[in-house]
């Protein structure tokens, strides 16, 4: 039973990890907590739905939507946030909240008020494993998400360790001014991170759409869990976001099974507070030391 819950928790946690990664990507470099993250992803899920409604397959729709999402992220960063970057972080937060509300209203105006269905990328009967520990069922799409998480984790590692962009990301997130003096353009790094982050959000929205169904609220739950995972793992650590998401998925399942299912969500919120109190930098984050 415990093994069941751990395995199933990892499947759920994969979604949390991907969301946390997207949030952390944007926060790590630009310092902006993007409250519109979930709704930007939701908007792109509606766009993907439009492509499937036109007769394209879900995989093709996803492939088209990912670069569109990146462009969307670029546009939001370049034209709404960067012009006010010199004002304050609070003003940028307010802009993200504004985008959140605009998108929420916009989708019902464009796509109507009915829930939309979105097909799974991989169809077929789920994998069923039964043994002494009980039965575990894997939907093919869940396995795909877990594999995607592994691939993205490896790609991020390679990007950060072995590319100029990776070095620029690290430099800008450490010290924006010093990076600029070294010839790095922080603006370009911001754009790239918003593009990656938004595309990642769109990926999760499209992959989860067969479960959540496309509606204005489809990403609310994932955004909360993604924030929690990011806090748990460390808001400035890619590895932390991945580990935080998987850990949260497993912990929630264990709490739901052995303590109370009603307390699962409450537990997530308590977890944020506890982690912030005991280890503000998260499980894998590093504490910043500043000179006085």
């Amino acid at each position: 039973m415990v093994l069941n819950q751990i395995v199933l928790g990892l499947a759920t946690g994969s979604f949390y990890s991907l969301i946390a990664l997207g949030i952390v990507m944007i926060y790590k470099t630009t310092g902006v907590m993007n409250f519109a993250f979930g709704n930007m992803a939701m908007f792109m899920a509606y766009v993907a739905f439009t492509f499937t409604a036109m007769g394209l397959g879900p995989a093709v729709a996803l492939i088209i939507v990912l670069p569109l999402a990146a462009l969307f992220g670029y546009a939001v960063e370049r034209f709404t946030l960067r012009p006010i970057r010199h004002l304050s972080h609070a003003s940028m937060l307010i802009v993200t909240l504004g985008i959140l509300m605009i998108l929420e209203g916009l989708v019902t105006q464009i796509w109507g008020t009915r829930y939309k269905n979105f097909p799974e990328l991989i169809k077929g009967k789920p994998f069923v494993f039964s043994g002494k520990a009980g039965i575990v069922v894997f939907r093919r799409q869940d396995v795909l998400v877990f594999l995607i998480l592994i691939c993205i984790s490896v790609l991020i590692y390679l990007l950060i360790k072995h590319t100029k962009l990776g070095i620029a990301i690290k430099a800008v997130s450490e010290n924006e001014k010093a990076a600029q003096l070294m010839g790095i353009s922080p603006g370009k790094v911001f754009s790239w991170m918003w593009m990656f982050g938004t595309a990642l959000g769109a990926l999760v929205a499209v992959l989860s759409a067969p479960k959540t169904y496309i509606s204005p609220v489809m990403m609310v739950f994932y955004q909360i869990e993604g924030f929690t995972a990011a806090v748990l793992g460390g808001f400035e650590s890619f590895a932390g976001a991945i580990v935080g998401g998987l850990a949260l998925g497993v912990i929630e399942n264990l709490v739901g099974t052995y303590i109370s299912n009603e307390l699962k969500s409450t537990f997530s919120l308590i977890l944020i507070i506890v982690v912030l109190l005991i280890r503000p930098q998260g499980l894998l984050g590093s504490r910043k030391i500043r000179r006085v």
């Binding site: 039973m1 069941n4 819950q5 199933l8 928790g9 499947a11 759920t12 979604f15 009980g134 039965i135 069922v137 989860s208 479960k211 959540t212 609220v217 609310v220 739950f221 994932y222 399942n253 739901g256 099974t257 299912n261 009603e262 699962k264 969500s265």
Partner: peptide
């Protein structure tokens, strides 16, 4: 009797209990 959060996106871990 299983209470659940309607916002949750996966009920696999709870379905195991129903199956049991």
């Amino acid at each position: 009797e299983i209470p659940y959060n309607p916002a949750e996106t996966d009920y696999s871990s709870l379905a195991v209990r129903v199956l049991g």
